[in-house]
């Protein structure tokens, strides 16, 4: 664009949150929070209910005024972006359209305000597969269609940065799979994708990086595999054998910790599966099952946020 507006590819698309704080009357909803989100990756923004995820996103988007601290996108505060929706697309609430307005008109209103051509509304609707329902009123949309319309609105300006608050809410399995592919594609194109959610199994499939907060504070930030890997000490080996006592005795020599599980299963920690197998072989113990149980994002999340999720 030659008129001095930020083109979609201008700016690095990095999101920097530094010292962000929001006090409501008695609650520190967000408490001196700092993190960085890189472009070209999908970042999961995780936290228990009431952790301050939505407040953080709203401060990032200039909808809520921070008590202290600042947040920038490509080095600029949202309010100072010359043409915000050409740079940042955001989906914050599922139901953010007038119930009596058609889907296409909802998008045209945004186009008019942003000075985008009217055709962008049709293009964005096609992008999310909602063209057949263009002239239906918003109140007739299913929850999944509402989410798609929200994403269409966010994509109107072909933004470099995408921010989504709980986008999987209300989507059916097919819709969730579509969303996963859609967001991964956007990240692969070099865009920044920040997604808040508490669907952890979905996040493990979708996100490259995670930012985990609890009680308004940062708990952990990093690549998903690193964060999960950091909890490797919680890995357990599941063993099923008809000779429990012999195996427990054999494993004792390897400093393994053995706990009884449900249905006669033994849960072994402190050693890896080959060690358990070799110990069993040496002791001539018959094994019926030998499985490594690695921690998943959900387990890690619960471990990291334990005791911090209290209602405040």
């Amino acid at each position: 664009m030659s008129d001095g507006r930020l083109s979609p590819t201008a700016g690095n698309g990095q999101i920097v949150v530094s010292g962000l704080t929001k006090h409501y009357r008695n609650v520190r909803a967000v408490d001196n929070l700092s993190f960085t989100i890189e472009p070209g990756r999908v970042t999961g923004f995780l936290g228990p209910n009431g952790a301050g995820k939505t407040t953080t996103l709203r401060m990032l988007l200039n909808l809520v005024t921070p008590t202290a601290g600042a947040a920038t996108i490509s080095g600029i505060r949202y309010a100072d972006l010359p043409d915000p929706i050409r740079h940042v697309g955001a989906v914050l609430e599922a139901s953010s359209a007038h119930k009596g307005r058609t889907g296409i008109n909802h998008l045209r209103v945004v186009c008019a305000a942003a000075g985008l051509p009217k055709q962008r509304a049709d293009e964005a609707l096609a992008l999310v597969g909602l063209s057949p329902a263009a002239k239906r009123k918003f109140k007739g949309y299913s929850l999944g269609m509402k989410q798609r319309l929200g994403i269409a609105a966010a994509m109107l300006g072909d933004p470099k940065v995408l921010i989504l608050d709980e986008p999987a809410n209300g989507l059916d399995p097919e819709g969730i799979r579509w969303m996963r592919g859609f967001l991964k594609n956007l990240a692969a194109e070099g865009r920044t994708v920040l997604v808040s959610s508490h669907l952890l199994s979905e996040m493990q499939l979708l996100a490259d990086d995670v930012v985990i907060i609890a009680a308004g504070k940062l708990v952990r930030q990093g690549r998903v595999d690193e964060v999960v890997g950091s909890m490797a000490h919680t890995t357990r080996i599941r063993v099923r054998t008809p000779q429990s006592d012999e195996l427990v005795a054999a494993l004792a020599e390897h400093d393994a910790k053995v706990e009884p599980g449900e249905g006669g299963v033994l849960l072994v920690s402190g050693v890896d599966a080959p060690t358990v197998g070799r110990a069993a072989l040496a002791a001539k113990v018959e094994l019926h099952e030998l499985t490594t149980e690695r921690p998943d994002l959900e387990g890690v999340f619960l471990e990291l946020t334990a005791g911090k999720a209290a209602i405040r």
Partner: peptide, 11 residues
């Protein structure tokens, strides 16, 4: 209708 968010995001 909770459109204030969209309105103030756009402007």
């Amino acid at each position: 209708h909770q459109t204030a968010t969209t309105t103030f995001l756009t402007t």
